[in-house]
């Protein structure tokens, strides 16, 4: 049996930011899906894992769940990864306290 979507139903052809963990792991040393991001368009903050992710585009496009503007784009080519974050004001990444060290001036 096939599901018929009513025409007035909103598009549901997205998944969420949880699936970014694999593609982003190639680039970053930490899990960015637990990071909190702020949308540059509407100012909403929330976990990267809760973004709306459309992976049927070339690469992956992650949109703000509140205003649906693009917050993150990641395209993988054979020899590089393109990461476009212009739709995000910041990413706040949880870090363990013990790894926080500020390099001081070099002692002479």
């Amino acid at each position: 049996m096939t599901e018929q979507l009513h025409p007035e139903q909103p598009r549901m052809d997205y998944v969420d930011g949880n699936m970014l963990a694999g593609p982003l792991q190639e680039v970053f040393a930490v899990d960015l899906t637990t990071a909190t991001g702020r949308c540059a368009s509407c100012g909403q903050t929330g976990p990267v894992a809760a973004l709306r992710v459309y992976s049927n585009a070339p690469g992956v496009v992650a949109r703000c769940p509140s205003c649906t503007e693009v917050m993150l784009r990641l395209v993988r080519t054979p020899d590089s990864a393109w990461l476009d974050l212009r739709g995000s004001t910041f990413l706040q990444i949880p870090m363990p306290a013990e790894s926080f060290t500020t390099p001081g001036p070099v002692a002479m």
Binding site: G17, G22, Q25, T33, T34, A49, A50
Partner: peptide, 9 residues
């Protein structure tokens, strides 16, 4: 296999 992945859910 790539993983384990995701620290949110």
């Amino acid at each position: 296999v790539k993983g384990p992945l995701g620290g949110y859910f």
